[in-house]
Amino acid sequence: MIKGLNIKESAQGGLIASTYLGYSLVFWIFPFVWLLILTFSDWQFIGTPSFSGLDNFFNVIQDPLFWKSMKNVFRFLMYYLPMVIFASLFFALGLKKIKYGKSFIALSFLLANVSSGVAYSIVFSKLFSDTGPINDFMNSVFGFTIPWFTNPDFAMFSIAIVITWKFVGYYGLIFYSGLVSIPKEIYDAAELDQTGPVKRLFKITLPLMNAQIIMVVVLAITVAFGIFTEPYLITGGGPLESTTTPMVVMYEAAFQRMEPSWAATMSIFVAIISFTLIWVLRKLFEKNIEIV
């Protein structure tokens, strides 16, 4: 009887799991195996891939555009990380102080995160263009303009502003969840010890939010390696390839130069570099914080 019941349970379990297994087989394992096949072969979308050994790996490493796009990811992170962490933290601290309409404000900020990349890229390219309203305003008030997207030194910074706008609500909510989980008693004790607000922030709030900060940084790194729509639509990867990201390079290689094997190989490099970066970051900065 018990044996029969176990078999029935297993069958039901198998049935439930089969949809997920089927899904994984089609949408995860198949593309992954295909990716591995492509990296060791030469293929142009049509016909059977021919084995090419490690040629794709050497070709990617020798391509200056690959290295340029990698350098651009780090340039982007240099602007984006401080900007998005500061802005999100500021948003979370502000949200904690607000008494009414919290959900409405949180949702308003979160709206940017679910907006269409194509739509807001067009809006930002209009707003920040050399002859756009922001530069018009700056010219009339301060007497100068900023080449937001047309200066090789400024363009990536401007892209970072756009992406910060998109993610500030999302990361802010993650920080907010960390902020509200810090027991009030700790702040009360600090107040009794006459600890100032700056010291409280750096000695209590930020250390106790280590998990959330690490999470946001990890998410930000994955964003940095994955940005495509904004540079592709706003700057076209320029000027002087200063905003060419790995995704732009891989997209152009696969679908415009018709070299999907090359693009697949580059994606392996990108994955290894981003995973390594995240692994190193977690090893160095992640702490196991327990509030007892």
Binding site: S18, L25, V26, F30
Partner: peptide, 23 residues
């Protein structure tokens, strides 16, 4: 039990059909 086996078989076939559909 027999019914469950049928369901599992159908689910398996469904998954296979999904893969085969990519031909």
């Amino acid at each position: 039990m027999r019914l469950s086996n049928v369901k599992v078989t159908i689910a398996g076939l469904f998954s296979l059909a999904l893969v085969a559909g990519c031909g």
